[in-house]
């Protein structure tokens, strides 16, 4: 079975690396990007099949809400999860997206895992969800 692929967009290496490793340990393929520009580059040039994107709503380079709009327009098959840490992000999300941040920063790795699995189950009827490892 091909593992589901999560693109983790997080500028802070010290935050991104342990979360990426945790998700790999849980059976996901993880693609790491520092920001929206890198994410676009990876999606355009590598041919990697991304199922889910997790991104900080307040990413410094380009905020997650704008990137989500771009993903929805250009890669509608990819589920996108925004992570937010302040109330204003939820308000901004409401203006641009159907739903606001689904997970909070700093990341709780298990909650992130649960949210990814929930999104995959919703979209794919649980077909691509890795086995229940890491719980």
């Amino acid at each position: 079975m091909t593992n589901s692929c999560v693109m983790l967009i997080e500028a802070d290496l010290l935050i991104r690396t342990p979360l990426a490793q945790y998700l790999r340990d849980c059976g996901f393929q993880v693609v790491e990007a520092f920001g929206a520009a890198e994410a676009r580059d990876i999606l355009a040039s590598t041919g990697v099949r991304v199922d889910t994107i997790l991104m900080d709503a307040d990413a410094p380079e380009e905020n997650g809400f704008m990137f989500k709009v771009w993903v929805r327009a250009n890669h509608p098959g990819i589920a996108m999860i925004l992570a937010g840490s302040i109330e204003r992000t939820a308000e901004k999300a409401g203006e641009l997206c159907e739903e606001g941040p689904a997970v909070s920063r700093p990341y709780d790795h298990k909650l992130v895992l649960q949210e990814i699995r929930r999104r995959l189950a919703t979209r794919n009827g649980n077909r691509d969800d890795p086995q229940n490892s890491g719980e």
Binding site: T17, Q21, A33, E38, D41, I42, S45, T46
Partner: peptide, 23 residues
């Protein structure tokens, strides 16, 4: 270069290495 970094990181992980990616 994200694409170059990704390909090398994947290659090393496939070979069993732990890989940390920095830009």
């Amino acid at each position: 270069d994200a694409a170059i970094r990704l390909v090398l990181a994947d290659t090393l992980r496939d070979a069993g290495f732990c890989v940390i990616e920095a830009r």
